[in-house]
Design a protein around this nucleic acid. Structure first.
Length: 477
RNA sequence: CGGCGUGUGGCUCAGCUUGGUAGAGCGCUACGUUCGGGACGUAGAGGCCGCAGGUUCGAAUCCUGUCACGCCGACCA
């Protein structure tokens, strides 16, 4: 018995977080590895999370006036070359198609690592007049980046995402859209994924290749490392000039459009795992749980038990995502498995409950068990799911706040990162040399310059010169 | 791209040093007994030992090459 449990057990997150993550991803059956490095099978349990993310994020997009489109996955090399900073940023990690069948191609095609260039090429032909603006398009697709170091969900060579690409008449409108979408992301992370985020701007060193400004939502994982969870870029008219995307304005002069792009990816699934998971496995926020209530019948071969379980499922399934675990495993096994898979609520129903007209429900996030009268079931389950969703966000926020520190000078800064992992808030002079030195000395990077600025001191934590911004620093995934 | 490590039934691994033709536990299938925190019995199925060369009467084991995967660093959703 002890042996069996050891075989099935996962690594403890306190002892080996990386192994714990891999174990959860595999044992909760979110993915499988494949014969291509860095490319994974996203299994039903993993894909269901992505579908729930898609549905709820896309609904928010629609409210924000976004329309969905689909562009090709191939980019001719000449097109990729048009914007200089952009190519330099992505060239090292693109995959190339060199042959069509047996014939070498006249021009090789890159598999999109991101679609700015394709959208630009399209907009160049599609936009003629101010009446054609704004364009607020998005596509759900996969992209390929030939990463050297890969990890399921966090960094795979092919990953699923959405990429929004917009074109506007004015710089101001583009900037507003950039911030609007960042706010959509932040709200989505907190309200749906129960992950609190820091909103802010990337430093020039960390910004997107070809962008004027990059904004980000940064989350803190349970091990204290930071994860960039969504980005929104303002391109100004840089791409428009490179691709000659012009429109005739009301005054009958040709003007360049101003563009934005913004994206979120399957990396969010990694964030859910690393923010909420525990040593029993995955813990899913109710809003992205494909099974919200798992009913475990006890002594299911006794007359009427399974029927009662199905009856309760049928009562609940109009309002919640429910399943009955009617496999012939023992209840203990089913409990452990439901925990590994992260189902928010487990319900136990057996002969004793049926006699008493009640059932037992157990919260995945806290382990708390309570008895519920069957005639109040719908109401109680609904309340509990809301409570779980809300408290998961609160706990994640408390964890983040408890792992956010402040440094006022270099010694303090080094001491914190020598002892702890988390966000460190510190003042910065704006000079990239300081970012470089900080990275070299303690292998942390600037995560963002938060919108919510605080004045911690007058001088840069690194060089002592006058400070311009407060920056969040951290070890990043 | 550098460093380290690993490739043997679905999974975790033993066997390799000292060559003799493949094992364990778990899982899987069937039947029976079980069932409120990872049950048990009985009977079964399942392996080109990552791949390619070489040495040898004989290679999972020795040699050479190669591929893949994992972890840690440098670069990135």
């Amino acid at each position: 018995m002890a042996d069996k449990k050891m075989v099935e057990a996962i690594a403890s997150m306190e002892e080996d977080f990386a192994q714990w993550y891999t174990d959860v991803v595999k044992k909760a059956e979110l993915i499988d590895y494949t014969s291509v490095k860095g490319c994974m099978v996203i299994k039903p349990a993993g894909y269901a999370i992505w579908e729930l993310i898609q549905q709820q994020l896309d609904a928010r997009f629609k409210e924000a006036g976004v329309q969905n489109v689909y562009l090709p996955m191939f980019i001719p090399e000449s097109l990729l070359q048009k914007e200089k900073d952009h190519v330099e940023g992505f060239a090292p990690e693109v995959a190339w198609v060199t042959h069509g069948g047996l014939q070498p191609l006249q021009e090789r095609l890159c598999v999109r690592p991101t679609s700015e260039t394709l959208f630009c090429d399209f907009y160049k032909n599609d936009i003629h007049s101010y009446r054609d603006l704004p364009k607020v398009y998005n596509q759900w697709c996969s992209v390929v980046r030939w990463e050297k170091e890969t990890r399921p969900f966090l960094r795979s060579r092919e990953f699923l995402w959405q990429e929004g690409h917009t074109a506007h008449a004015t710089a101001q409108e583009a900037q507003e859209r950039t911030i609007q979408m960042l706010n959509v992301y932040a709200d989505f992370c907190e309200q749906v994924l129960a992950i609190p985020v820091i909103k802010g701007q990337k430093t020039d060193k960390e910004k997107f290749a070809g962008a004027v400004a990059t904004y980000t939502v940064e989350a803190l994982m349970h091990d204290g490392k930071a994860l960039q969870s969504g980005t929104s870029h303002n391109f100004g008219d840089g791409f428009a000039r490179a691709f000659e995307i012009q429109y005739a304005d009301r005054d009958n002069t040709l003007k360049y459009v101003h563009q934005t792009s913004w994206g979120m990816s399957t990396r969010l699934i990694g964030a859910i795992i690393m923010v909420h998971g525990d040593n029993e496995g995955l813990v899913l926020p109710p809003k992205v749980a494909s099974v919200q209530v798992c009913i475990v019948p006890i002594q299911q071969k006794k007359e009427g038990v399974l029927e009662k379980a199905y009856e309760l499922r049928d009562r609940l399934k109009g309002s919640f995502r429910v399943k009955v675990d009617d496999t012939d495993k023992t209840p203990g096994f089913k409990f452990a498995e439901a925990e590994m898979r992260g189902y928010p609520i487990r319900m136990e129903i057996g002969p004793k409950d049926m006699e008493a007209g009640k059932c037992v429900i157990c919260r995945r996030d806290t382990g708390e068990k309570l008895e519920v009268a069957l005639d109040q079931l719908e109401e109680k389950v609904g309340e509990l799911l809301e409570t779980i969703q809300k408290e998961m966000l609160e706990r994640a926020r408390a964890h983040r706040d408890a792992h956010t520190y402040e440094a006022r000078n270099f010694d303090e800064f080094q001491k914190i990162f020598a002892e702890k992992t988390g966000f460190v808030k510190a003042m910065w002079c704006g000079d990239q040399a300081c970012e470089d030195l900080i990275k070299e000395k303690m292998s942390v990077t600037s995560r963002c310059m938060p919108f919510a600025q605080e004045h911690l001191s007058d001088t840069c934590v690194c060089c002592g010169k006058p400070a311009k911004k407060m920056v969040y620093w951290g070890k990043a995934y």
